[in-house]
């Protein structure tokens, strides 16, 4: 079980103790674009217990308080790739802190330097404008469109594929995220 520590936040492995928090967060209006997932705490406990060995789900802690989650999944040793996502933050996260940027930096640093992956990627529904903006902001490359890949609100939605290669992370994303995090004057 891997804990990742940054300047402002700590990522701790998700356990069944977090099931209630996750269910509550996923059912809030602001998480409407995330796959519905477990409806009850019991289902969420089962989901956590059944996680395969090729994924890591972390809870985001700020000053000893859990405020969100983020994951690295479909980790492929063969292809040296993984999907990053499932980023969700509680609506009452503290303002002014670079929480989402640091969470992404910690996960991608782990993916590229510890797991020695070659690529991290993600798939975002075209209706999820917040996630699209975030991926553009953090210098993920748009790689293509999966046409009518999701059904959301009974309507087929395209999905945008984002990806970043190891070299791009080292040269572009990592320094950018560090600069954004260091803008913070706390």
């Amino acid at each position: 079980m891997i804990t990742l520590t940054g300047k402002f936040i700590t990522l701790k492995p998700m356990t069944i103790e977090h099931a209630e928090f996750v269910v509550k967060m996923r059912n809030l209006e602001h998480a409407r674009f995330v796959n519905r997932g477990s409806a009850t705490v019991e289902q969420q406990i089962d989901w956590i217990k059944s996680r395969p060995s090729n994924e890591i789900n972390w809870m985001i802690y700020f000053q000893d308080q859990v405020i969100g989650q983020i994951s690295l999944y479909t980790i492929s040793e063969q292809h040296k790739t993984a999907e990053a996502g499932r980023l969700m933050l509680s609506p009452d996260i503290p303002k002014g802190y670079p929480i989402s940027f640091e969470a992404i930096l910690l996960v991608n640093t782990y993916a590229f330097y510890e797991l020695k992956l070659n690529k991290v990627y993600g798939i975002v529904g075209s209706m999820n404008t917040g996630a699209l903006k975030l991926n553009d902001f953090i210098k993920m490359k748009r790689e293509g469109v999966l046409r009518e890949h999701f059904i959301f609100d009974y309507i087929c939605q395209d999905c945008i594929c984002f990806g970043i290669l190891r070299d791009e992370f080292i040269k572009v994303q990592e320094p950018f995220l560090k600069k954004v995090i260091n803008l913070n004057k706390y």
Binding site: L89, S100, K133, D136, L183
Partner: peptide
């Protein structure tokens, strides 16, 4: 109005939306 940092108005995801828009 403080945008980001101590006493800020925005969280990190809202800052992203603001910048991109």
């Amino acid at each position: 109005m403080i945008l980001f940092g101590a006493g800020a108005t925005l969280d990190s995801l809202t800052l992203v939306s603001l910048v991109v828009d």
